[in-house]
Design a protein around this nucleic acid. Structure first.
Length: 157
DNA sequence: GCCAACGTTGGC
DNA sequence: GCCAACGTTGGC
């Protein structure tokens, strides 16, 4: 069963335009166990909302899909990376993630302020006060509405 | 195992 | 740049 997720990234570092250019990318650099567990829970074909964090304004910029699961994050073994983890065992790597493929950049960017007016904090986990988790699940109902809004098909607001 | 200090995230 | 809300670290 297809599931939906929301992945945060800073667009100055890696945003929807980078993903469109690259086609696919390994979602590397996640170093939070709860976020990692959500990455490991992803299945092939799951769809991912790309959220621009620390942006002006922050919000949802587009859609990707999971094309490979349980991918070893290569940065954990790169001593030059800020995401290097000297204690990760190469035989049993600590940080697993996914590869995602670009699907679309939304015609309508969905700023957080609009998301706040549209969804409750129960419907969209990332809206919760103090939430810092960079990988969160999105319910089917919320996903349907986000897709319609992003594609300019919603009359809401 | 507790918890204070510190570091990070990310909206504002 | 501020700061709330965490997560992590390390002394005890």
């Amino acid at each position: 069963m297809l599931r939906y997720w929301l992945y945060k990234s800073e667009p100055t570092v890696y945003g929807i335009d980078h993903l469109q250019r690259d086609g696919t990318t390994i979602w590397d650099g996640v170093r939070n166990y709860q976020a990692r567990n959500n990455l490991m829970a992803a299945a092939l074909g799951d769809q991912v909302f790309i959220y621009h964090a620390s942006a002006d304004p922050p919000g949802i910029a587009g859609l990707a899909e999971v094309v490979e699961t349980m991918v070893v994050d290569p940065l954990q073994f790169d001593p030059d990376s800020k995401y290097y983890d000297a204690t990760s065992n190469p035989v049993e790597p600590r940080w697993l993630t996914v590869r995602v493929r670009f699907l679309e950049k939304f015609s309508d960017f969905l700023p957080m302020e609009l998301l706040r007016r549209t969804f409750s904090t129960e419907e969209l986990v990332t809206l919760r006060k103090g939430n810092r988790l960079s990988v969160t699940p999105v319910t089917d109902a919320a996903a349907d509405r986000i897709l319609a809004m992003g594609r300019g098909l919603s009359r809401a607001q």
